[in-house]
């Protein structure tokens, strides 16, 4: 995805066991911060109307 222009950080993968609640919180916090820092996504948004 990054290869075709999606900014690094917008797409995230994680492996969290159902027992790892604190890891889950940390990852979500981290992802939210990174994505907020990147600003709104302007790619992959379908134009409202096709001409």
């Amino acid at each position: 995805m990054e290869h075709m222009g999606v900014e690094p950080g917008r797409l995230n993968f994680s492996w969290i066991s159902s027992a790892e609640s604190s890891k889950f919180v940390d990852v979500v916090k981290g992802v939210t911060e990174t994505v907020k820092a990147l600003g709104p996504n302007n790619n992959f948004k379908k134009a409202a109307k096709v001409a």
Binding site: E2, H3, M4, G5, V6, E7, P8, N43
Partner: peptide
Amino acid sequence: KIETMQPSEKWDYF
């Protein structure tokens, strides 16, 4: 060559 581009350049390239 594509890998060295900035994200927006990559997007435009494709």
